[in-house]
């Protein structure tokens, strides 16, 4: 019962979010400029050309009508055709998705275990040199603007030392009908710097959270009781502390994974990584409305889905949610 209500609550919130997203995004994009001039040559176009293009793009209709058409299309998975690439926007988005997914996944695979472990160790040794160093380092890591961090990684890792390539996906291999970089050595080589750029702030964030969680859980009565009943401190750490701090950590991992999809905007543009984020920025600058809407809607959906997954994971993890019937 608790699970059903959690899922339903999340779904209703997701629905609201999507409606709001689509309205805001649609109106917002609409007010930015006239995309007609992207399809016709502004110098040579006759008024007839412009009118023809306007009608072809459906821009002559009242704005609410355009919205209804838009929503109707979206529901059928059709975001329209890119003004620039002349491809269906959704298809374009999907072709860029694997690059972003593999980048974010690898960054999170580095950040989550490393951050959790560092935080656990520091949380059990409050005030020691290790703890203080970690705290200072994490504040610093969280203070570095992500784009500058990426640039400095290029400067140090690529330009000065020549160890890693400064951009691009490298060689890709085919799997499940998509191209993946992580399947080839050269591709992995190209992944290192961008993945580090995404992972470093997340290591810091997760480490801080895991540290404060550890301190909190270890001060609770049941860990004291565990010691009183004769358990070894290792068992307390792995069987009691870790499961109990995993709830907030899983939350932040879920949220940050969604955040990575968004922050990929920065990292991908710097490393010329042909993913969703680079597509979004390029489309915003080129006023490619269908692609912008498809991308924003996609990121919002992905974010909501991740939130729902996190909620489900709570239920798996926490019997109080799972068994509250």
């Amino acid at each position: 019962m608790g699970m059903i209500s959690a899922v339903l609550g999340r779904l209703s919130q997701a629905f609201l979010l999507l409606v709001a997203m689509s309205v805001i995004g649609f109106i917002g994009i609409h007010s930015v400029g006239n995309p007609v001039f992207n399809v016709v040559n502004i110098e040579t176009a006759t008024p007839e050309d412009i009118r023809g293009a306007t009608i072809a793009l459906g821009l002559d209709q009242p704005i609410w009508h355009q919205y209804v058409v838009f929503v109707d299309n979206v529901v059928r998975g059709n975001f329209g055709t890119s003004y620039i690439y002349h491809l269906p926007a959704f298809e374009l988005l999907m072709s860029k998705l694997p690059a972003t997914l593999e980048l974010a996944s690898i960054a999170m695979l580095i950040a989550a275990p490393l951050g959790t472990a560092l935080g656990l160790v520091a949380g059990r040794r409050i005030g020691t040199l290790f703890d203080r160093t970690l705290l200072q380092a994490s504040v610093s890591a969280l203070s570095i603007p992500s784009f500058w961090l990426a640039m400095m990684l290029i400067l140090v890792g690529a330009l000065l030392t020549g160890w890693f390539p400064s951009g691009g996906r490298g060689t890709t291999a085919h799997l499940l009908g998509q191209d993946w970089s992580f399947l080839t050595a050269n591709g992995l080589w190209h992944l290192v710097l961008p993945a580090m750029a995404l992972a470093i702030p997340n290591i810091a964030l997760i480490a801080r959270l895991s540290r404060s969680g550890t301190i909190e859980v270890e001060s609770l009565d049941f860990t004291r009781f565990c010691r009183a009943k004769g358990l070894s401190s290792r068992r307390i750490l792995f069987r009691h502390t870790l499961p109990n701090i995993s709830v907030p950590i899983v939350t932040i991992i879920g949220l940050q994974f969604g955040g990575m999809l968004a922050f990929a905007v920065v990292v991908e543009s710097i490393f010329s990584w042909p993913g969703v984020g680079k597509l979004l920025i390029d489309s915003i600058q080129l006023l490619d409305r269908p692609v912008v809407m498809a991308t924003l809607t996609f990121v919002a959906v992905a974010f909501v889905l991740l939130n729902a997954l996190v909620d489900l994971f709570y239920a798996v993890l926490d019997p109080r949610v799972r068994l509250s019937s």
Partner: peptide, 20 residues
């Protein structure tokens, strides 16, 4: 601890791990 000298605390809710 536990084997020869055991303990019972006041707050029964906090004494037990909620996840186990």
């Amino acid at each position: 601890r536990g084997k020869r000298i055991a303990a019972v605390f006041q707050d029964h809710t906090a004494s037990l791990d909620p996840l186990m």
